[in-house]
Amino acid sequence: MKDKKLGSIISHNVLIAVLCFIWLIPIVWLVCMSFSARPNMNTSTFFPQEWSTQYYKQLFQPDTVNQFPAWFMNTFKIAIATCIISTCFTLMVAYATSFGKFKARKPLMNVAVMLNLFPGVLTMIAVYFTLRTFGLTNSHIGLTLVYSASSGLGYLICKGFFDTVPRALCEAARLDGCNEARIFAQIVIPTSRPIIVYTIISSFLTPWMDFVFAKMILNAGISSQYTVAVGLYRMLDKSLINSYFTIFCCGGILVSIPIAVLFFIMQKFYVEGITAGAVKG
């Protein structure tokens, strides 16, 4: 009886181990490739024939193609700005739609649902020309606006979370003479840490992930202006992949590390935020 139970525990854990193993193969390959001693892809063996850290060093020696330190800083700045604007906008819309009692609330929410159904890629060209009119193409401000200006539309998960905040607290505060602004700032915001963390992380990540808009808006071909995504994507260009594949892998690893750290620190809040939001949203 005990043996049978032990057996099932072992097989259960072996199954998980196998699944995790499968999930990690490409990541392990990425790490291995980044320590390869040759610049191009090794297609004959899984592990590099020779190991080396020289391409990590090369990553930090900018050349005409590789400007990784500049890309990283650009993306970081854009990410911070996007994060601040997006988080504010999302929280503002979520609070207004969750706590507000105005007539236009339902119609506005329905319009938001409709707008979310249009594919974003499509509107890219119009966004581009709007930015150009204001002289904001090839600028990080323009790119930040693209990432953050419409962020109010992604309010649903956050609203779902706010819906679970007990209304009694707010009523009590209202009786004490607090106005809406104070209730928002001093009662709702402090109780909503998980969803704020969730919003911050997901908006912070946007500039690291997107390359379509970045490529379109940073179209002057000046490498030092790029974001990490555009820059690394270029390294896999037909004419460059042969000399930059390993550097691409190094760059990929270095971008992933801060994101991974962020994730692990915030994992608890992240899960709480997204689930509380999803349960209701």
């Binding site: 191009n40 892809m41 297609t43 004959s44 037909k238 004419s239 992949i241 042969n242």
Partner: peptide, 9 residues
């Protein structure tokens, strides 16, 4: 676009 890789292969 894959020729260079294959030569190197």
């Amino acid at each position: 676009g894959d020729i260079s890789n294959q030569i190197a292969g």
